[in-house]
Amino acid sequence: MSKELSYLEAIREALAEEMRRDPKVFVLGEDVGPYGGAFGATQGLHEEFGDMRVLDTPISESAIVGISIGAALRGYRPVAEMQFADFISCGFDQIVNQAATLRYRYGGRASVPIVVRAPSGGNVGGGLYHSQNPEAWFIHRPGLKVVAPSTAYDAKGLLKAAIRDDNPVVYFEHKYLYRRAKGPVPAGDEVVPLGVAATRREGDDVTLVTYGAMVTPSLEAADRLSKEGVEVEVIDLRTLLPFDKEAIFRSLEKTSRVLIVHEDVKTLGIGAELSAVIMEERFDRLDAPVMRVTSPDTHPPFSHVLEAFNLPNTDKITDALRRLAAY
């Protein structure tokens, strides 16, 4: 892990390496071919791997996923790109009804090793249909795995693990991080295992659980609290389904307090589930109610003023941490 890459370059490198390693891996989606993808994630791949392994498709999200499922049933490992995570609703049925249920209704005799890459998240001025965080829709569907990296290292390592996984994986890559997150990446055959959280900062007073683009403001808020004598442990979930319950519980043993931070809206976001699980299984370890900092229950607006109002940030997280520490 010598060289440093951006989050976006890390995704590209994961795709290229997996395609070189396994001839059954191919990518498909809108503009992924010679153009290299709307964000450039597949740049250079068409040149190296050709038309049939870097497949430009019509604007047909449902077919993109359905085609991936068909190919997966014949032993391929397709990586489908949704141009924006917002558009995944057009492929929803194929993901939640076709892919997620297939192994179950086949009596365990088949699996669907597809990855659906979905550029998600706001703070990029994208407005209602270029900023969404639809991860909770998929966390609600048994049979899927859901991934959301926060660093270049994980962007590469988790994508490689997702491609090698035998189950359908929805991989949410945060657009805000594409060029802002930079760092070392795994080398060679190393992957970041699915289902394992990372502790980004250790602390004994409050546990903060988050993922994706919310990790950085969470760490900034934790640094502020540290100056006030409160040590916050920051857990980056990395995989949202299945989420690493034990990592949260281990931290809770020390802290007795949990704050959940996500960019997705509050009602039935993953914070609701995490909070319920903590309450059900570790009620006696809590010294305070589980709290959440999330976007309000509204849509991601276009105006900078409106979007800033919605998005969690370092100040909002700091305030919540102070309230939780003082509870």
């Binding site: 077919a63 359905g66 085609i67 991936s68 499922i69 068909g70 049933l73 049925d93 009804n97 076709q98």
Partner: peptide, 17 residues
């Protein structure tokens, strides 16, 4: 599935291979 027509993109994927 019960979603009629949803087998057709899958058929295209099989044929693609």
């Amino acid at each position: 599935t019960s979603m009629l027509g949803a087998n057709l993109p899958v058929a295209a994927g099989l044929a693609l291979t």
